[in-house]
Design a protein around this nucleic acid. Structure first.
Lengths: 139, 139
DNA sequence: GTGATTGCAAATCTTTTGCACTAAA
DNA sequence: TTTAGTGCAAAAGATTTGCAATCAC
């Protein structure tokens, strides 16, 4: 069960992104990417690091999440004004969002298709398409 | 050009929504609904009220926007973490968003169709579908 | 009058920033 | 070494809240 090089994957990932593999970046990368697809807020990730015995400041968690996003390792999901979510799945896909619990869930990109693409204003191009299906408890 | 009852429409709107037509609610309603479809932030609306010579506190602008939203007079559009937009168009439709300028533009609901509706998690129902087409300057 | 609404300032929450200190290369 | 990265605390925004004063009914 014990892995002789628990940070090998995170190390490669950071090097490939051109980010210096520091202690805290390695630890955060491990928390983020070793568990499959995840959606986290800065506060959640900071709490997990804390629980795992990793000393990281909130500022560093924010900085790291932003750097990972810029490097293409993460994607920001906007579903709540005043709270940023980060998604480890950077491929084209969409989201279910349950406001009540603050839960995000992926929807594979091929399950949602725009049947008609509206005219884009002149001089502009589509950068990204976000589809959010907001859920509530069934009545 | 001068209207003998400039607040008549706003008055009816507030009464229909069950909101007491106070001075500030009437003034904000007029700013919001007399100019057709609009997308505003609390800060923008506060500035407009200020320019129009209406004394309203920021807190009241926030409270009013939230009350109008709860009453179904406005719809909140989430496109930016850390800034809430309110849309006077409450019918089913979607949005173009240009992050660079903070500009929102409506897309009629019938111009965007989801070709395949993904399976909704058990016990949940779809409350709303938000489609955001993020724009950038054409390269 | 009486209860809803407002204003103001303070409080809260999330995120960013400045700067001295630490660590990676 | 040299420079990037980190921690901390302070700053910055956006939004909410508590409470006395004010207004609609």
């Amino acid at each position: 069960m014990s892995n002789p090089r628990p940070y090998a994957a995170s190390l490669d990932r950071l090097r490939a992104a051109g980010l210096r593999p520091t202690r805290q970046r390695l630890a955060l990368a491990k928390l983020l990417f070793d568990a499959g697809d995840r959606h986290v807020t800065a506060e959640q990730l900071h709490g997990e690091a804390r629980d795992a015995g990793i000393r990281v400041s909130v500022a560093t968690v924010y900085n790291t999440l932003n750097q990972f996003t810029e490097a293409g390792l993460l994607r920001e999901v906007v579903v709540d004004p005043g709270r940023a979510y980060f998604d480890t799945n950077t491929s084209e896909h969409h989201h279910f969002y349950t406001e009540e619990s603050g839960t995000l869930e992926d929807i594979p990109g091929d399950r949602v298709v725009l049947a008609a693409m509206p005219a884009v204003p002149p001089g502009k191009a589509i950068d990204r398409v976000d589809v959010i299906l907001r859920l509530k408890a069934k009545s």
